[in-house]
């Protein structure tokens, strides 16, 4: 053993080790806190599950076909909510995106970025709660919730696209003597439109999922039926609803992926 030459220990080893240990302790403490204070009545949960299992699970896989008419109506409404909301969001997020793009607004872009992250911090459903109170329990409350909720994410994506454009073309136009509006239309828009569209369509996919649950707070669409079916414990109908959601979401995901691959 004596003739072995071992490599020198890494120089920052002590600092690194303390850092790792502190992080490990923090993470461990977080988990200890979580598991110690979490309050789950296992016995009751398991007992209920044993009692309810045959009443819930088999019925989910045996959809109530007689509800198909109502379910398709509401699912169609869900798609409309998502569509109207996405279009509104796409339009709303354009000015917000320019406001948040560093190469367009300089240091003022910070304001735009703050607005966008504030919007993103609101879960869609909270917005739906607010709008249901504001405009009544209708599908339009859902449209507004989707429109506002989506423009947080969409505005952020759009502003990132704007920040990546080739500024040389803008400079070339400035050198031509073009004014700001002309520059916007000839140098900026052509560079960003395909990506914009692609993200807007992608957001429509996300919004379909979002709008299908808004109904549980009264904002229209299939979620309304989820809410009823669950309070009536009508699991056959829930099976039908679930089937409708899975089919519509899959179809729209597939179509959207096809369209997006054509655009970009």
């Amino acid at each position: 053993m004596a003739n072995l030459t071992l490599p020198p220990k890494p120089k920052n080893s002590l600092y690194k080790k303390t850092k790792t240990i502190i992080i490990l302790i923090l993470v461990a403490a977080l988990y200890v806190w979580t598991f110690l204070s979490i309050d789950i009545d296992w016995a009751r949960a398991m007992e209920r599950a044993a009692n309810n299992f045959h009443r819930v699970i088999p019925r989910l896989f045996d959809p109530d076909w007689s509800a198909m008419g109502d379910v398709s109506d509401k699912m169609f409404e869900t798609v409309l909510i998502a569509f109207a909301g996405s279009v509104m969001a796409a339009i709303l997020s354009i000015p917000l995106a320019f406001l948040a793009a560093k190469n367009m607004m300089g240091i003022f872009s910070v304001i735009g970025k703050w607005i966008l992250s504030a919007i993103r911090a609101f879960p869609d459903i909270i917005l739906a709660v607010l709008f249901v109170v504001a405009v009544g329990p209708t599908a339009f409350a859902g449209v507004l919730a989707i429109a506002i909720g989506s423009c947080g994410m969409l505005g952020k994506m759009f502003s990132e696209i704007i920040e990546q454009i080739d500024m040389d073309i803008v400079q070339a136009m400035q050198a031509n003597g073009a004014n700001r509006i002309q520059i916007l239309f000839t140098a900026v828009f052509p560079q960003i439109i395909p990506e914009f569209l692609s993200y807007a369509i992608y957001r429509f996919e996300v919004d379909i999922r979002a709008s299908s649950i808004l109904g549980i707070v009264g904002a229209g669409g299939i979620g309304t039926m989820i809410s009823f079916a669950s309070s009536n414990r009508n699991w056959n109908e829930m099976g039908m609803i679930l089937l409708a959601i899975i089919i519509v979401v899959s179809v729209i995901d597939f179509a959207s992926a096809k369209i997006r691959s054509k655009i970009v």
């Binding site: 789950i40 296992w42 209920r48 599950a49 414990r233 899975i246 899959s250 995901d253």
Partner: peptide, 26 residues
């Protein structure tokens, strides 16, 4: 996985609440 991703979280929650009763476990 694709099928899993089409199921909204709320539907999952509703089903599990139906199974296990109200609480954080579902």
């Amino acid at each position: 996985l694709n099928l899993l991703r089409t199921i909204p979280d709320v539907v999952l929650a509703v089903v599990f609440v139906g199974l296990f009763g109200i609480g954080i476990f579902p």
